[in-house]
Design a protein around this nucleic acid. Structure first.
Lengths: 331, 331
DNA sequence: CAGGCGCGATGAAACGTTTCATACCCGTGG
DNA sequence: CCACGGGTATGAAACGTTTCATCGCGCCTG
């Protein structure tokens, strides 16, 4: 592999000069510069980032670890983060923990070993060995889609309790009295909070609430949950799902069983991913500003890495209900 | 930041010994080993991957550059690739070109500078400055979802011509005589091939074919195309879309305009993403083995990086038609 | 008892950069 | 004519690892 000293030898200059041509072109005489540049071109020299980084002590890369890239919500978060990072000339590497703590641990270790500039993290659980070990490495990090005490780190999240309440109030207003909640794994704070918001808002309303916990937060888990839901009696008249993927699965199960939506079963999802509006019956959903979440988190992280004295912040966005056919009362 | 020599000093051993503890624990006496390990724990030492890599001359990372992470098809490709890489103890970093040549170029440059072990590439265009420059860097690469001459590199693809033909024959058999094709950007070989397969299969059938080119390969481009389609007269009775995202957009436009699917307009998509089956009207689609594509490509790349004498291969998978409501003739 | 062997530990070199103090060359002003 | 300074180029040190030749030491064997 051709290195800086091959270029130097071939161009008849010192390696320091080659380095200057690459990094501070203005300090080298124009004749020399052109000669070196043409040798670089001729030899196909590509500088070695690991050597650069070793010398510089820090990398030009930012890590992003999300819970599930199969969920378009996180793809949007990644898009937002990428924008902000590119604006500062940094590259982002996106990794997918798939909600598995072991993968999360392995990616965090990788980030630490890479001496990444910082990490945007949407964690499986904020306690846990992996995270504790990662903290010790001293790599700066910001939580995404997860509140955290500012004493520990900055965070950017959406108010999940408010989101749960939004869904609850909507279902109450449309007259439902038997409601099911299809939740995801309770390890996830998002799931716990949405349930809590729902419960609090339903308090005293006399609504009969059934809670099902799905295995995952994906469409096929939703189908399973939908099948279970079909077996309950008396059957609820509305179901709120922790996630649009779950909601799409539930919807599919209902349509497959000939249950009419929303007449026999109203459905509310969460995230308002693009597919929610294009579903069998367009889904009512709680919208989160996903791209903004990613962008803001990246900006916060960039600030903190530029100036370590800056205070941690906890940014919380407010979700918004988008009403579509799946809960719209037909006349 | 604590380095190997801090550990060495504190444990009263040489840096070579510390290195051995980390990399070849069996060669160091158990008492020494434990002492060093406890110092590592105490100091929170994390080894510096850039120094490691500089010394080793190669990295433990594989790059994956896809056209669009917003398309669940590529998320599945990424999943497959990740599996194969992890099985070999490598990490994958996934980047998203979003079909933009400038981003593609910038990520390829980054991969080359990082000296990644190899790159899985689903390129915007196989010609082009970016790719030519990348080739010169000598980083091994394998094309994903794109055929390529074995003289250049290995590739893993799905037969898009066959896929287009599959859709065409299905629409012919279900009696359609005015068909529209909503294609994506013609720079993409996938789009050109699917169109060609369609045209060839329709040849001599007397079918009237209208081709629309959408701006992108996403749902909103599909909505636009759907709107345009509504304006054509006489209106086609079936539409084939280069992609499920486009098909979902077209579907949404049709449903919004009160056009009955499949009676007034049959729709066929491509990729068979999970959302296709959960759509307003479940979509007939051409299925591709996405995860297998990623896994196979990664395995090929691993082989080639392990043994440079191995021959390039071009693996081609065969697509499969999945028939659902959107083309099913109702009785 | 000498020689050899195996186990553990050591010290130094090397990886490819960047940076910085230094040196050289030439022209200009005193 | 000398001193000085601006514009260029140089050489060496440093970054944190891994690797490898070497060495010391205790033990076995002949």
């Amino acid at each position: 592999m051709v290195g800086i000293k091959d270029v130097a030898k071939r161009a008849g200059v010192s390696i320091g000069t080659v380095s200057n041509v690459v990094n501070r072109p203005h300090v080298v005489a124009v004749a020399t510069r052109n000669r070196v540049l043409s040798v670089i071109e001729e030899l196909g020299y590509v500088r070695d980032e690991s050597a650069r980084q070793l010398r510089a002590g820090r990398s030009r890369i930012m890590g992003l670890l999300v819970l599930d890239l199969g969920n378009p919500f996180f793809v949007d978060v990644a898009r937002g983060a990428e924008q902000a990072a590119h604006a500062e000339g940094l590259n982002i590497i996106t990794c997918n923990s798939g909600q598995r703590s072991d993968l999360e641990a392995s990616y965090l270790a990788m980030f630490a070993e890479q001496r990444v500039r910082g990490v945007l993290l949407s964690p499986v659980a904020t306690s846990g060995e992996a995270l504790r070990a990662f903290r010790r490495s001293g790599t700066p990090y910001v939580f995404v889609d997860r509140k955290a005490p500012t004493s520990e780190a900055s965070s950017v999240a959406v108010d999940d309790i408010a989101g749960g309440a939004l869904a609850a109030r909507h279902l109450l207003e449309t007259g439902h009295r038997r409601i099911a909640f299809v939740n995801g794994p309770a390890i996830l704070a998002q799931c716990r909070d949405r349930e809590q918001g729902l419960r609090t808002a339903l308090e005293g309303s006399g609504v009969e609430l059934t809670v099902l916990e799905a295995i995952g937060l994906d469409v096929s888990s939703g189908r399973d949950a939908g099948a279970r839901l079909l077996g309950t009696s008396p059957r609820p008249t509305a179901v709120f799902c922790a996630n649009d993927l779950l909601a799409l699965g539930v919807l599919q199960a209902m349509v497959g069983a000939g249950v009419r939506i929303p007449e026999e079963m109203a459905i509310v999802g969460y995230d308002d991913i693009e597919f929610a509006g294009a579903a069998a019956v367009p889904l009512t959903s709680v919208r989160q500003p996903a791209q903004r979440l990613g962008r803001t988190a990246a900006e916060l992280l960039l600030n903190e890495t530029a100036d370590t004295t800056v205070e941690h912040q906890a940014v919380v966005f407010t979700p918004e209900l988008v009403v579509r056919e799946s809960t719209r009362v037909r006349r």
